[in-house]
């Protein structure tokens, strides 16, 4: 049975709660940040950068790109990292824990320690113009039951961001911002959905395939494959090809040999599909063929095809596949007419 910690009740109590005091953006809406944004986005619309262009379409001057909504309240990388590490180490004072922080902590405790953003929807009430001060208030809108996803088991959580314009000011406490927000004009909202999840246990990495036994007699064959060549031993006295490699020719008793490079074309002479036992280095069911090469020898090799489609007599062509630094093998696939 599942013995994991379940914070369903505590999490349900967070839904609908406003998360902490509202936060004020560190900068007023300004031209420099807009320019960087549209450069990065590749957006050439003149209404974001050219006062005359904006007026031409009936605006009263430059407006900020609507999708920058959240950018105006972002505190920057360093402040974000400090806040995250305080939460992770538990050093954030309990009195400072927002509903969002609580939610994240409870989800961590449930074992859902990983996070991925899944959706972001924004609604805009009106455009922002230069010189405006943006503030944001977070509300926990939804926390799902435990779901099992492709990434792992966890909960989806949706936080609503309500954006307001408040009078510009340099120094204000959280409570002062809250007072302003209470009577301010809302200019947009964002729903940000995350999946907090326990990553599925990473399956053990597949061990490498077994290596061949390489001797002075057969090294040319295995080294050839590493060089991308399917080599077949040839008697230099009578020309007979032989595989697997041997130091002498059974036809003429010569000990002299070299090799040819096979074109890798042939037909399936016989084949099997291995089901058991299952060795972790391989995927099953595992089709293996005995290929009669056009040059006249046979070779045992993997087949890159559905096992049920393998037929004796089928035309196939080899590719040399590097499985790792130490092992390359010919793999045969059907020749399409």
């Amino acid at each position: 049975m599942d013995t994991r910690i379940d914070h369903s009740v505590a999490l349900a109590a967070l839904v609908g709660q406003v998360s902490g005091e509202p936060a004020m953006g560190p900068h007023l809406v300004n031209e420099a940040m807009i320019v960087h944004w549209v450069e990065a986005m590749g957006d050439a619309n003149p209404v974001y950068v050219d006062d005359a262009g904006a007026r031409e379409v009936g605006l009263e001057g430059i407006i900020a790109p609507p999708t920058m909504l959240q950018a105006w309240v972002m505190v920057g990388l360093r402040a974000t990292l400090e806040r995250e590490s305080a939460r992770a180490s538990g050093s954030a004072k309990s009195g400072e824990e927002s509903a969002n922080d609580t939610m994240m902590r409870l989800l961590d405790e449930e074992g859902f320690t990983s996070v991925v953003a899944t959706n972001c929807e924004q609604d805009y009430d009106r455009p922002l113009v230069l010189g405006e001060q943006v503030a944001v208030q977070l509300t926990i809108e939804a926390i799902s039951d435990v779901k099992t996803t492709g990434l792992g088991t966890g909960r989806f959580a949706t936080t609503r961001y309500d954006f307001y314009v408040i009078p510009p000011s340099t120094e204000r406490s959280g409570s002062a911002i809250a007072a302003e927000v209470a009577s301010a004009e809302r200019i947009g909202t964002m729903r940000f959905r995350i999946l907090k999840f326990a990553p599925a246990p990473r399956s053990a990495p597949k061990p490498p395939r077994p290596l061949p036994s390489v001797t002075q007699d057969n090294a040319f064959f295995w080294e050839g494959l590493k060089d991308g060549e399917l080599r077949i031993q040839r008697c230099t006295s009578c020309g007979t090809l032989r595989h697997t490699p041997l130091p002498g020719c059974g036809e003429c008793q010569s000990l002299d040999w070299d090799w040819i490079v096979s074109a890798g074309a042939g037909e399936i002479y016989s084949h099997v599909t291995v089901h058991y036992p299952q060795v972790p280095s391989f995927d099953y069911p595992l089709p293996i063929g005995l290929i009669e090469l056009d040059e006249g020898t046979r070779i045992v090799a993997n087949l890159d095809m559905n096992p049920d489609d393998v037929k004796i007599g089928m035309r196939v062509q080899a590719s040399i596949v590097a499985f790792d630094d130490e092992l390359s093998l010919p793999v045969f696939a059907p020749v399409t007419a």
């Binding site: 290596l211 390489v214 007699d217 045992v300 092992l327």
Partner: peptide, 27 residues
């Protein structure tokens, strides 16, 4: 259970069966 293990001994007897091991023809 078949012939298993990453690197077989280099000798003529293993060179033969060993040529099928990387392919998964082990049993």
């Amino acid at each position: 259970a078949g012939v298993q293990g990453r690197a077989p001994i280099a000798n003529a007897e293993m060179a033969h069966l060993g040529s099928y091991m990387p392919v998964g023809l082990l049993t």
